[in-house]
Design a protein around this nucleic acid. Structure first.
Lengths: 157, 157
DNA sequence: TATTGTTATACTCTATAACTATA
DNA sequence: TATAGTTATAGAGTATAACAATA
């Protein structure tokens, strides 16, 4: 009969080791799927000298003209202090502008320049094209189901 | 007629700013869902003085007795060099043991101690209980569908 | 007194190169 | 010559506290 407390097994029989034990943890599978998408997006965005982070910020500024940094940080769930460097870089590259809000001179209004809008458009097209490749085997209905699930996790947590 | 190139809008009308523009990017929604789970797991594992990273490593050692560090790093998709500190901490806390593989003295065999197994069991129970809360409104079928989708993303990417 | 943007800083995570011992 | 484990280190990413300007 096999001992309950066998001591220090030394090597795996062949190659049976796997991460199956972690698969019951939803966060584990979520992270891995996220990392796959992140790697792909990073590669794609490198062509535009953008990081995923700065692309997200630029996209939200394009979509929300005049948004103040504090609101952008809130949406992106990052610290205002960490957003500063991202904005600095986007502004230096003349992709966005910072203008004072005359109604509340503590705030800035962020706006994408024409150049910023054009770059965002191209970068979005590139990442979405590549996303389409990855999700090619998903039907439209399946894709909708997936994104609905992801939203529910955010809402429930 | 509205100008095509209006200059520098300054503030949003009320509070319409949102991240809706990023929602067509699957990676964005994946990251946010992942971050929710990660935050919750971090809080829960803090009670056991474990990080998500070290809990994952410990769990895989429990599930794969005798696994060598190089294989563990491969499964976790992290650098061997970064795994060393994680193993050091787990070993110092006597949750795992490192023993030389006599067949290949370059390798170590990692094994969870009884203490390590017990801690892993409790920590897994805690995180899974909390995961159940988050996914409470998912039917079993929906949950299966979600995890299958996540696996497909990993496989396609 | 509170908020916005900012600076400085520390802490964690991750990536890379080089070393040793073994094969 | 190649591989496993390790060390050291640099670079990101992230979090916190404090400050000036403004409300």
């Amino acid at each position: 009969m096999k001992q309950l407390h066998e001591s220090a097994p030394v090597s795996q029989e062949a190659d049976v080791s796997s991460d199956e034990a972690m698969r019951e943890h939803l966060g584990y599978s979520l992270k891995r799927a996220y990392m796959c998408m992140h790697r792909k997006a990073t590669d794609e965005l490198e062509k535009f000298s953008l990081k995923v982070r700065s692309f997200s910020a630029l996209s939200l500024i394009v979509a929300n003209p005049g948004i103040p940094p504090s609101r952008l940080a809130e949406i992106l769930q990052i610290e205002r202090s960490n957003l500063v460097l991202i904005m600095d870089e986007l502004e230096t590259r003349e992709l966005i502008s910072r203008t004072r809000d005359p109604h509340d001179r503590r705030r800035f209004a962020l706006n994408a320049t024409l150049r910023g809008k054009r770059l965002q458009e191209k970068a979005a097209a590139a990442t979405l094209a590549q996303q389409t490749q990855i999700t090619a085997r998903f039907t439209a209905a399946e894709y909708e189901t997936l994104t609905a699930f992801l939203r529910r996790i955010e809402e429930e947590a």
